[in-house]
Write a protein that binds this DNA or RNA. Structure first.
Lengths: 152, 152
DNA sequence: GTAATTGCAAATTCTTTGCACGGTC
DNA sequence: GACCGTGCAAAGAATTTGCAATTAC
């Protein structure tokens, strides 16, 4: 799905939940859509939004992100660096994607495959816990860093 | 393993890394050991340590937690509430345990079984990513809340 | 028109840092 | 006596809030 279509869809969601469609919200959404893979923190989103809409305030960005989190358009995630990051939820994805955090280079890769279907069955059966969503991050060495290390 | 034995072992680890074993650090460790299941945030740990050692400062607690994180005695975790929490790593556990976060009552349950062995193989084979550790939290409804809901 | 939204600044909250003092080997 | 560790207070960073002005519908 292209950016425009996604944007329209999210706009509709906003409307349906009684939120207004302000230019500030649209700019913020655009930044999120254009940096889908980047796990931006609020401040970073703010800087990028400011390029499109210089008059926007940081507080508005925070407020927009809060709404989008509520609507499950984005997921708030943290990689233990003290910042909250906002990760666009793939439209139609049943489950939130997983992350691979490289301890060498810091890069974060996304995994779209849902690797947890079996595991979630176990959690349900064995722990009586009804799974609605998950957060899974692997810490380790990414393909590139691994290759570099082996060459030494 | 009992608390005293665990404490001794951690003391040894501290020593081996060139850290001293101060009463403040010992008190902090005791609080962590006594509240193993509780995912305390720094401030909460501080309050509990203060009961044992009233003269301690919050900064010392933070500094101790930093050291313990470095030594992998604890894991710093975040459940997206803006606080860093410190979770004692089970001694001898090859992998960090998983969490079940109930969206109804907020309770956090721990799962000791390592459910990710197969998944990690896939991550290695398919993404070339060498897994060293992981963070896995399920969001959903816990056994108790589920039972309550069904009774309505 | 009016209720929601905004920008700004101030306030809060969590965490880190600087520094003089105290304890230890 | 060198050095590590501490408490305190101040600084810093991230996020939230109050409020008057503005805007979307």
């Amino acid at each position: 799905m292209d950016t425009i279509t996604q944007l329209k869809k999210i706009k509709k969601q906003l409307h349906e939940s009684g939120f207004k469609l302000t230019p500030q919200r649209e700019s913020t959404l655009l930044v999120l859509l254009e940096n889908e893979k980047d796990h931006l923190a609020a401040e970073e989103i703010y800087v990028r939004v400011k390029e499109k809409a210089p008059e926007i305030g940081l507080a508005t960005v925070y407020r927009t992100l809060e709404i989008l989190t509520e609507l499950k358009v984005v997921n708030k995630v943290s990689f233990n660096d003290g910042l909250s990051r906002y990760d666009l939820r793939k439209d139609g994805a049943k489950h939130f994607h997983h992350h691979l955090l490289c301890l060498e280079c810091g890069q974060i890769e996304e995994i779209e495959d849902d690797l947890l279907l079996e595991v979630e069955k176990v959690v349900d059966k064995q722990y009586g816990f009804l799974v609605k969503d998950h957060r899974l991050t692997f810490h380790g060495i990414c393909r590139n860093c691994r290759a570099e290390k082996n060459q030494l």
